[in-house]
Write a protein that binds this DNA or RNA. Structure first.
Length: 276
DNA sequence: AAGTGTCCCTGCGAGC
DNA sequence: TGCTCGCAGGGACACT
């Protein structure tokens, strides 16, 4: 599932594809509900002729800055994928493409999404959406994190995954950060000592940076799985210590990892290292 | 304020 | 081999 490291990887790969500077010649909407704004039928006319000025990430949002007054935001949610189709390959119509942008060099930027949870927005002011997000975990001072964490009395894991609290963390990296910090996901955020909160801060940043370094986490081989825009899978799966490791020995103490539900989400912990 | 339930979707793995 | 079934999950929203 695309979380901060996967989305960052997508943005970097799109830049490497040379999208910045190209013009969007047309847009085709194959699944209207994938377009959150404007009205789907108005997207093609509204975006036609815009030049791509820049690509960036905020939380799990991909931001495409355009030469016109509006900018494009894309959220991949669970199974969304962006890829660049070469000019020579015609559109097949047999993919999961929901929105396709034709580019001035003949290639196409395709938003593909089997489960249709992902969304694209073309909006005059992206900050209306992005300002709801909490701070970026990799650009957040430790003291601020510790303060924000202990100022609340929330169950730890749902708080880490709350995009208004911190932007970009999802189920995989929440489990990994808590495992690395040796803290139980059901602890209350205000029960953490300053030392524990600092440990969680370091663990969170370590697992996110490692995820980026490894080009994200790809879990399986199917269509619903994460791939870079150029098609390669990320290789962070082999570095996971908790997520999806049910029954496998904990890397620290060899106790089998167990799966539990926290806030209706599958959660993986070492019952020996992470005590309530 | 925090937590729970529901909805949106459909591929895929497990079980038979 | 081929079928059915339920899980997976981010985020918006309605409730308690």
């Amino acid at each position: 599932m695309p979380e901060l490291p996967e989305v960052e990887t997508v943005v970097r790969d799109l830049r490497a594809c040379g999208l910045v500077g190209l013009q969007i010649m047309s847009a085709h909407v194959f699944w209207p509900r994938s377009v959150a704004a404007p009205a789907p039928a108005r997207l093609p006319a509204a975006i036609r002729g815009n030049q791509i000025i820049g690509l960036s990430r905020r939380g799990k949002f991909i931001r495409v800055d355009l030469s016109g007054k509006a900018d494009l935001l894309i959220h991949l949610r669970m199974t969304g994928r962006l890829y660049v189709a070469p000019a020579e390959r015609p559109a097949t119509g047999k993919t999961y493409d929901r929105v396709v942008f034709a580019l001035s060099d003949g290639r196409r930027l395709c938003f593909s999404d089997p489960r249709k949870f992902g969304r694209v927005w073309l909006v005059d002011n992206p900050d209306v959406l992005l300002d709801r997000l909490g701070p970026e975990p990799l650009a957040l001072p430790r003291a601020t994190f510790v303060h924000r964490l202990t100022a609340r009395s929330r169950t730890l894991k749902p708080l880490l995954m709350d995009q208004a609290f911190i932007a970009g963390i999802g189920n995989i990296y929440a489990d990994e950060a808590l495992w690395a910090a040796q803290i139980h996901p059901q602890r209350k955020s205000d029960s953490l000592s300053t030392e524990e909160a600092a440990r969680l801060y370091r663990a969170m940043r370590t697992v996110l940076r490692r995820g980026i370094r490894n080009l994200g986490t790809s879990l399986g081989a199917g269509h619903t799985n994460f791939r870079l825009p150029r098609g390669v899978p990320g290789r962070n799966r082999e570095h996971l210590c908790a997520y999806g490791q049910t029954g496998l020995p904990c890397e620290r103490c060899h106790t089998p990892i167990v799966r539990l539900l926290v806030g209706q989400r599958a959660t993986h912990i070492c019952p020996a290292c992470q005590r309530l």
